[in-house]
Amino acid sequence: MKLIIVAGPPSAGKTAVIRQILRNLPKRSAAYLKIDVIYATEDEEIAAEFGIPAKKLISGDLCPDHAGIMVTADALGWAEEEGAEYLIIESAGLCLRCTPYTTQSLGIAVISAISGTHSPYKMAPMIALADIAVVTRVDLVSQAEKEVFREGIRDVAPDVEIIETNAIVGTGMRYLMQMIEGLEEIVEESAITLRGNPPLGVCTVCIGKKEIGWNHHFGVIRRLDDVENLFRGE
């Protein structure tokens, strides 16, 4: 089994990139899992278009990357049962603090070339912990804009592979496919861990207390005027 994890902000073109990957992989060699928070139909679309096993996980009140971590082992088992050679997991792309990439996988960050010069800086962990940054919609920008956007990615992740594409048409995908061809099988599933550190855990807001104001809450919290004071115990 080979694991590919695709992250990136909403509407960056993650699904379009995955469609191109599926178009270029041997027919029916992959299984697909979409993780989202409220709504997703990509699983049905991908299943209908490529005839492959596809599932979705709606995380609801749970952080979607958290949900992803919990189900990845199950998903690998499911993909195995379905006889797939690849499992492709598409993240919800909401959290710019966490990254869903694991060890023994290929981590792909998808970013849109028209998302603004500062966007790579704002999603630095998502890019820096990925193996590849796929920049979509490059057909909409001129050469200088492409290079300036790329420089932002280089600032946060000097060594990440950058692949520029118009994912609808599939330009540039040959380089992504070369990297997928070089991807190694999972050696030991039980040894798979997250690449990055998850954020510090729980405060009283996280567990569902809705009252406003400082006096109702404790745990890992920050005050507006006092950012060094991270933790307040009861």
């Binding site: 028209i114 050469q143 200088a144 492409k146 950058i162 692949i163």
Partner: peptide, 20 residues
């Protein structure tokens, strides 16, 4: 792959540049 080696520059039809 490396823009600094690329001998081609395309100026697209788009007349807006979104760089902030």
């Amino acid at each position: 792959r490396d823009p600094s080696c690329k001998p081609v520059a395309l100026i697209t039809q788009t007349t807006k540049c979104l760089a902030d």
